[in-house]
């Protein structure tokens, strides 16, 4: 890391700009919307005799897991990976390229890995401020609806979801370095994450899919939506999700590091 450029000041500047932008507003609205929907539609959803209702029946005596499953596995994991997290990074490099800004930025005394880390860390922070900023206080909205839900179980899954967002950010950053257009980057991220969430969505339908789902971080991020919280496993799964993410980050940095711009 370059010691003369104030890395924190750069990150703060970018994060602040992202938070107070159209994308920050969109992320905030989507998160609040999902939270409110999760808190207030849940009762009626659980009683409804639909497909979802059949699945809820699997945890008939566990309203806390019913909630966790519906809210995190059913909605949040998709929203986070397909929309919320990529929103903050899909145009990181492709945007700088198309706007021909990349030459100006990289002529500064920063290395290319630092440039990539600036994009990643500011996206992690902006996503974190909005996602955690909505979901953590959101517990007080949800708890009255689902009194059985403990704060620790809810927080643990929230943190794992945030880490799933970190995975999405690393993959979307790689996509952004590979393609030259913001639109293609967004569509490619959207397509890839829609595809990646499938094995996890299918794990309820067959044993084979459980094994396939284990090759995606989604499985580990949503594990405690159907299982009781265990501290050791929580830490292990958090590490597993980070390990899933790092190769994509490394590939993104390698890609940009060797490229003529």
């Amino acid at each position: 890391m370059d010691d003369k450029v104030d890395f924190l000041a750069v990150i703060w500047h970018r994060t602040y700009r992202m938070l107070f932008s159209v994308r920050g507003l969109l992320a905030l609205l989507m998160s609040v919307y999902m939270l409110v929907a999760g808190a207030y539609f849940l009762d009626s959803l659980m009683e409804a005799g639909t497909v979802t209702g059949e699945l809820y029946a699997l945890f008939i005596d566990r309203p806390d897991l019913q909630f966790q499953w519906f809210f995190f596995d059913g909605a949040m994991s998709k929203l986070v990976t397909i929309f919320l997290a990529p929103l903050f990074i899909f145009d990181a490099v492709s945007g700088d390229r198309t706007g021909e800004r990349i030459g100006l930025v990289l002529s500064r005394p920063i290395t290319r890995p630092t440039y990539m880390l600036i994009h990643l860390v500011s996206a992690i922070l902006a996503f974190g401020v909005i996602f955690l900023g909505v979901l953590i206080p959101g517990y007080f909205l949800i708890h009255p609806q689902v009194p059985e839900l403990t704060a620790s179980a809810y927080l643990a899954t929230t943190v794992l979801m945030y880490l799933l967002g970190f995975f999405a950010l690393c993959v979307a950053l790689l996509i952004s370095t590979l393609v030259k257009s913001n639109l293609v980057s967004f569509i490619a991220s959207f397509g890839l994450f829609s595809f990646l969430m499938m094995p996890n969505a299918l794990k309820y339908t067959s044993d084979v899919m459980v094994d396939v789902a284990k090759f995606t971080p989604h499985y580990y991020a949503t594990y405690f939506t159907t299982h009781n919280l265990e501290g050791g496993l929580f830490i292990a799964y958090a590490v597993v999700i980070i390990l899933f993410s790092l190769p994509f980050l490394a590939l993104a940095i390698l890609r940009i590091r060797n490229e003529d711009l």
Binding site: M30, Y33, A37
Partner: peptide, 24 residues
């Protein structure tokens, strides 16, 4: 970039709205 983001987000919210109603 911004047009796609806003257009997509508004469409998603509209579609979720009727879905929740129907699921309930």
């Amino acid at each position: 970039t911004y047009t796609v983001l806003v257009g997509f987000a508004v469409s998603l919210v509209l579609s979720f709205t009727y879905s929740f109603e129907l699921m309930a």
